[in-house]
Amino acid sequence: MAERREQEKPLAPATPAIVFVEKLTPFPAAEFISRRRKRCLKCCGCSAALLLIIAVTTLALMLTVFHVKDPAIKLNSVNIHGFDKLSNNTNALAGFNLTLVAGISIKNPNAASFKFDEATAGVHYGGALVGEARAPAGEAGPRRKRRMDVVVDIMVDRLVGVSRFESDYAAGILPLSAFARVKGVVKITEVIKRSFVVKINCSFSVDFRSQVIRDRSCMRDLSL
C-alpha cells in the first residue's frame, strides 16, 4: 500500500531551462555610411585633381612644345657677277653666263628640327626662265636659323632672246625675278609631325653700270 502511494506521488517539476538572451549592439549604419562617403569624396577629389593636372599639362605641351609652327624663308642678299662683260652683241655672248648668288635663310620656330629636301631656285626675265639651280638638302635645328647660298647660272643667250632685252640694256636696268622653294617636315613625335613647302618670290632690278641691286621686293608663301 505504501509502495502504491509512492508511485502515485507526483513527480517534481523539471528544472526550468535558463535562456540567455544576448543583447545585440545596434549596427552603426549612419557612422559607417558617413565614413564611406568621406572616403569616396576623397578618392573622387584626388582623381579629379589628377585628371585636371594631366589636362592642364597636356594643354600646355600642345600649346608650346608639341605645337608645330610654320617655318619661314627669307632672302637676305642678292649678288650677280659678270655684268661687266655683258653687252648687246649677241655673237660675243655665245656660251657666256652670269652668276647669281642668293643668300637665303630658313627660320625654324619649333622645338624639333625642320628637315628639308633639296631646294630649288630659278630666275625669270620677261616671263622666260633664264636660270635655275638646286641647293643640297639640310636641316634647321630647333628654334634655329639655317643660312645658305644658292648659286644660279643665268644663261645669257636666253636673256638676249627676250624681245625687251635691247631696250633694257640701253636703259642700263635689267628687271629680274627669282624664286626659291623648300620642302621639309617638322617631326615632334611619330604621331605629331607636319610637312611644309615654303616658297619665296622676289623681284628686283640690276643696274648694269654700278652692278647694284635695286627695288628688291619679296613675297613669301607657305603650303602644307
Results as ranks from 00 to 15, higher is better:
Lys69Met: 11
Asp207Ser: 14
Leu50Gly: 06
Ile80Val: 15
Leu59Arg: 05
Ala128His: 06
Tyr169Asp: 06
Arg209Phe: 03
Ala171Phe: 01
Thr25Ala: 01
Ala180Met: 08
Arg35Ile: 15
Asn97Met: 01
Ala14Lys: 06
Val185Lys: 07
Asp221Pro: 02
Glu166Gln: 10
Asp84Asn: 15
Thr15Met: 03
Thr189Trp: 02
Gly95Pro: 08
Lys115Ser: 14
Phe96Tyr: 13
Ile213Gln: 04
Gly172Met: 09
Leu61Trp: 10
Leu159Ser: 11
Asn97Pro: 07
Ser203His: 09
Phe208His: 11
Cys202Asp: 09
Arg37Thr: 15
Phe83Ala: 12
Ile173His: 05
Tyr169His: 13
Leu59Tyr: 02
Pro109Cys: 08
Ser167Phe: 13
Arg214Pro: 01
Cys40Asn: 03
Glu190Ile: 03
Phe27Glu: 10
Gly95Ala: 04
Val78Thr: 08
Leu51Ser: 13
Phe32Arg: 01
Asp221Met: 08
Ser167Asp: 14
Asn89Tyr: 14
Glu139His: 04
Thr120Glu: 11
Arg35Thr: 14
Ile200Ser: 06
Glu8Ile: 04
Gly184Asn: 12
Ile192Lys: 02
Gln7Arg: 13
Leu86Val: 12
Lys187Thr: 05
Thr189Glu: 07
Ser163Asn: 03
Ile154Lys: 08
Val156Leu: 10
Gly82Tyr: 01
Ala135Val: 06
Ala170Met: 11
Met219Phe: 02
Ala121Cys: 04
Arg5Asp: 10
Arg4Gly: 12
Arg143Ile: 00
Ala112Met: 04
Lys9Ala: 06
Ala135Tyr: 00
Glu3Lys: 09
Pro10Asn: 10
Val185Tyr: 00
Ala60Arg: 03
Lys74Phe: 12
Ile106Phe: 09
Arg209Val: 06
Asp157Lys: 03
Arg220Asp: 05
Phe114Asn: 08
His81Tyr: 00
Lys74Cys: 06
Ile173Tyr: 01
Arg158Glu: 15
Ala111His: 10
Ser210Glu: 15
Ile188Ala: 02
Ser34Gln: 15
Lys115Gln: 14
Leu59Ile: 06
Gly95Asp: 06
Arg134Phe: 00
Thr58Gln: 09
Val186Phe: 09
Gly45Leu: 02
Leu224Gly: 04
Leu100Val: 09
Gly127Leu: 12
Ala17Asn: 15
Lys193Ala: 12
Asn97Tyr: 00
Arg216Asp: 03
Val198Thr: 11
Ile213Lys: 04
Asp153Glu: 13
Arg164Asp: 13
Ala119Arg: 02
Ser105Tyr: 01
Ala2Trp: 00
Thr90Asp: 05
Thr120His: 03
